[in-house]
Design a protein around this nucleic acid. Sequence first.
DNA 1: GACCCAATAT
DNA 2: CATATTGGGT
Length: 313
Amino acid sequence: MGQEVRITDYDVSTANHDGRVTAWEAGLPETADLPPLSQILLSPEMASAFSISPEPHRTMIDVDRASRDTLSSLRGQSESHLMNKMNDFRSVSDEREDEMVVEGEEIVDLVRDGGDSPSRKFRRVDGGGGGGGEEEAESARANKRIRLVWTPQLHKRFVEVVAHLGVKNAVPKTIMQLMNVEGLTRENVASHLQKYRLYLKRMQGLGNDGPSCSDIPFASTPVPKSDLGGSGGGIGNENGQVRVPVPMPYPPQMVPMPYPPPQIVPSAAAAGGGAYHHGFEYHSHHPYNMMVQPKEWSGNNLGPVLPYQHSTA
DNA sequence: GACCCAATAT
DNA sequence: CATATTGGGT
């Protein structure tokens, strides 16, 4: 896990009937020498400190299945998506439990990098019982407009990207691209950007500290407790909310970006380092993902997860 | 078509 | 309130 697999020359034909590629096992320690799969290598404290979501326990079955999947995808018309993974720097963050949650019956599952349809970010999840069904026809466009929630993490990425692009380049499209968040649309960014700009403007205009205490930064804002306990693989929680993957390669300084950011606004630019700006205030909470809510989410205050909040007041 | 902005809808 | 959508204009 957590290993980046480079696809090089290997002979798939060396795989035996068991679906195992013996060549890959050469030189590896015997299973007996390895700690049990279920053993936790990372302390909870450490994990939370680095925002690492614990992996569900894996069993040999899982390993086997993964192995099989890998093989079959290698043999199949895969090549293409594997290449994508390689070209994309985001690959490193794999192993994270990225998923996106969406409206009641729609959705999601993103990721799991292991290997399957990278194209369909959204998958239909069937509640239950019904009968039978034809879900392929709709799966194609199973994308219902989703309401994106700008979590602190997402917003942070946003701010970083905006800060790292000059004012000049900070336009929705490029921001969106640099953020590199699956499922994020230009519209999402545009909308957020609009608000962000307003916020910035409103900030500059006012000399300063109007409303007393707008920042309660995140001094002691540990990491939320995402629902790990029981999620054995379940997707959304009872609430019907979903998470979206937020591949976070690194601060947006990875791409062809000649020179550092001309900083747009003092406060915002500072964000890159660690100091925080007021502005888009967010009451830090939330793991590394963004949530989505049902569209007709009208008086539903029951969110186990509250997004962050802006506002100066 | 991408962008901006304001207004409006959800 | 936070977002999405729409419409007018560059």
